[in-house]
C-alpha cells in the first residue's frame, strides 16, 4: 500500500515536469486528466470505505473527465494556435521546476514532524504541484494554459490535504470542487469572449487597441 501511495506521488511530480516541458496545449490538458486520475485513486488508497468510493468517483468524473472536456471544447471553440508559447523556455522551465522541487523537499523535511510516516514525499509533491500551477499561470501567455495552471494549483492543495490524511478534507474539498467547476465553466466563456474581442487569447497584449489587432511578433 505504501508503495502505491508513493507511486501516486511520484507520478504527480513527473506529470508536473511533463507539464512544464510540454509544448502543446492539448498535451497539457491530457496531463491534467492524468493528474485527475491519480488524485481520484488517492482516497481509495487511504481508506476504502463507501463514502470514499463515492468521493473518488466524483473526483474522477470531474477532474479526469469534465475539466479536460471543457478545456478541449474551449480550445476548439477559440481556434487557438496549438503551441503553448511560454515566456520562459522549456528547458529553463524544467530547471526552475527542479529548483522548486528541491526547495519543496527541503521544506517538507523541515515540517515533516507534524504528520507521521509518509509525510515527506506527499507534502513535497503537493507543494511542488502548487508551485508548478503558479509558475504555469505566470509564465504562459495564453488564457487556456492559465486555467490549466489554476487547476493544477488546486490539485496541489487537494494533494496536500490528502497526504496529511485530514479527516475533514473531503467536506472542504467538495466545496472547492464545486467552485472550481463553476470557474472552469466561466473561464471557458471568458476565453471565448476574449477571443472574439481581440482575435487571440494572448493575455499579454490586451491593451485595448480594439478588435483585429495583430499579435506582436516575438
Amino acid at each position: 500500500m505504501m508503495d502505491w501511495l508513493q507511486t501516486v506521488f511520484v507520478v504527480m511530480i513527473v506529470a508536473d515536469f511533463a507539464l512544464l516541458a510540454s509544448s502543446r496545449i492539448a498535451g497539457c490538458i491530457n496531463i491534467l486528466a492524468l493528474q485527475g486520475v491519480m488524485l481520484s485513486v488517492l482516497p481509495l488508497l487511504n481508506h476504502a470505505s463507501v463514502s470514499n468510493i463515492f468521493f473518488a468517483s466524483l473526483i474522477f468524473s470531474i477532474k479526469a473527465l469534465v475539466f479536460p472536456f471543457l478545456l478541449r471544447r474551449a480550445l476548439k471553440m477559440v481556434n487557438a494556435k496549438r503551441e503553448v508559447e511560454p515566456l520562459v523556455g522549456y528547458s529553463a522551465s524544467i530547471l526552475i521546476g527542479l529548483a522548486a522541487l528541491i526547495f519543496s523537499f527541503w521544506l517538507s523535511g523541515r515540517m515533516g514532524s507534524f504528520s507521521p510516516g509518509m509525510a515527506i514525499l506527499g507534502v513535497s509533491a503537493s507543494v511542488f504541484t502548487m508551485f508548478t500551477g503558479l509558475f504555469v499561470i505566470v509564465s504562459r501567455v495564453k488564457a487556456i494554459t492559465q486555467v490549466v495552471g489554476y487547476v493544477v494549483f488546486e490539485n496541489g492543495i487537494y494533494l496536500l490535504g490528502s497526504s496529511l490524511m485530514l479527516e475533514q478534507n473531503m467536506l472542504v474539498e467538495l466545496g472547492v470542487i464545486l467552485d472550481l467547476l463553476v470557474f472552469v465553466l466561466l473561464s471557458g466563456i471568458v476565453v471565448f469572449h476574449i477571443n472574439r474581442e481581440f482575435d487571440h487569447i494572448d493575455t499579454d497584449s490586451m491593451d485595448g487597441d480594439g478588435p483585429g489587432r495583430e499579435v506582436p511578433l516575438r
Binding site: 508513493q6 511520484v10 511530480i13 513527473v14 515536469f17 516541458a21 522549456y90 528547458s91 524544467i94 530547471l95 521546476g97 527542479l98 522541487l101 528541491i102 523537499f105 523535511g109 515527506i120 514525499l121 513535497s124
Partner: peptide, 24 residues
C-alpha cells in the same frame, strides 16, 4: 534531444531526492 536529456536528469534528481528523503 537536449530537452529530453534535461528531463532524464530531472527524473534522476527526483530519484535522488526520494532516496535522500527515505533514508533520512
Amino acid at each position: 534531444v537536449r530537452r529530453m536529456l534535461v528531463f532524464a536528469s530531472v527524473l534522476s534528481s527526483l530519484a535522488l531526492l526520494i532516496a535522500v528523503g527515505v533514508s533520512a
